[in-house]
Design a protein around this nucleic acid. Structure first.
Lengths: 253, 253
DNA sequence: TAGTGGTCTAGACCACATA
DNA sequence: ATGTGGTCTAGACCACTAC
């Protein structure tokens, strides 16, 4: 391999990027462009090395980082696959609420009920969170999640109208499996990371009714913005969690 | 380098560990044993490679993982250093409470006030969290953290008595800087990771008084167990956070 | 100038999966 | 038997830091 790779890293260029970073970003582009679909394998390291005219080790390091960011999944002997929310053991990718007792349990809420799903115009704060303009079309979904008959999570979420054109309450209700898997397979929107802001709040009367608690019951307010590739916000979610029998679990490295 | 390394990895042994994992665990032992103190450099990759009779690349991969776990810090051209809570920009290693407004702010609470610090016997739940026996000696500390004069965090923490013999309210009050830095320099206890359980609660009368809020104000209850090397729990901390002007920020990968 | 970590390469062998 | 990712090595060169 003596010929030059795609982009020769100029020595002492002000903005310099290691070769493997350039390769990583090329692979990221292909992921985003949908060259390989979620769940499918990407080309082998050797193939990618040939394609980009670099060594296998350089491709390896690029994939190492993509793997660390959960964008791809390596499987020894089989290949490297585009990460997907479907076919994944974990039902709820970003949900950190777990029962106080069971730990190995690892089960998410069993019952889901869509309260409603309607198109509307983005309010100022929703628009800001989703990088839209106030008044742009958005989809609003409300639902309740229950553990063993006990309603525990009240969720309200907003999606940008354009990418999610055609999403209805019926399709949501008919869908069994992770909501993010539906977004992925039906709308080509893959959530890759999220930010949450957590507060303690008291519910208003309607919220309390949906969760079957008193309005004096403190609840966890979890506001999540989920992003797809290139840090594009694609979902705003506001959840109210009951924390009398469950808690939000967080690991700090 | 043709001679065998420390432990020859037997082929097809039931429990097999890659060489670099073995090296990592050897380095970890030295870290735990205090062979290199926090803030000090560890030997260069080449030296470690010679010491363990493996290639530099293998040592490199071991250090890569230690670095990803924040146990060491690499500095190009200078060396690899044992991570430390002192001399670190971040004042509060595990605190995720940030002002609603400021983001770049990155400032922790400016004022700290030790409410009290006393020796006592571990209750059942404190003992369980710290892997002690009920009745074992523990130190209990209570303090209030304030942002610009507004008390915002009420913290109650328990430390195992033996490793922290000699810790008093005076020493805590006299100490300026991160509490974990004091633990590190004065007691040789370095916290490397933590787990938090978060709930929404209402304060009792005394808690409300210390935070200057009504007993009807919902607060974030953050229970943290911090671990030193080898997953040994060394601190139980229960915090009550006001979330009217601040929020708990979490990034989900 | 010397030493450190950072990048890149090339090749060997291993473990795993599949046909 | 073949192809995949996983490990390990050895050596080259680069960038940063210190003396």
């Amino acid at each position: 391999m003596t010929t030059s790779p795609l982009t020769v890293a100029e020595p002492s260029t002000p903005s310099f990027s290691p070769l493997y970073q350039q390769i990583k970003s090329l692979i990221l582009q292909s992921l985003h462009a949908g060259e390989w679909k979620p769940g499918e394998p990407i080309p082998s390291e050797i193939d990618l090395a040939a394609r980009f005219r670099v060594s296998q080790g350089t491709v390896r390091k690029a994939i190492d980082e993509l793997s660390a960011e959960n964008l791809v999944v390596r499987r020894q002997g089989k290949g490297t696959f585009v990460a997907t929310h479907a076919e994944q053991h974990v039902q709820y990718r970003f949900l950190k609420l777990v029962p106080d007792s069971g730990d190995v349990d690892a089960e998410g809420p069993a019952e889901r009920e869509i309260v409603d799903c309607k198109r509307q115009r983005a309010s100022a704060d929703v628009a800001r969170a989703l990088s839209l303009r106030t008044g742009d079309a958005v989809l609003q979904v409300r639902r309740v999640l229950a553990y063993r008959g006990t309603p525990t999570i009240l969720e309200e979420l907003w999606l940008p109208g354009t990418p999610f054109k055609g999403l209805t309450a019926e399709r949501l209700t008919a869908w069994h499996g992770p909501m993010y898997a539906l977004f992925e397979t039906e709308f080509g929107v893959r959530m890759v990371r999220a930010e949450e802001k957590i507060r303690a709040v008291l519910p208003d009367a309607s919220q309390a009714a949906l969760l079957a608690v008193a309005t004096s019951t403190p609840l966890l307010s979890v506001e999540r913005v989920a992003y797809t590739y290139h840090d594009t916000p694609m979902e705003l979610r506001r959840g109210l969690y009951r924390t009398d029998t469950h808690h939000y679990r967080n690991d700090l490295g």
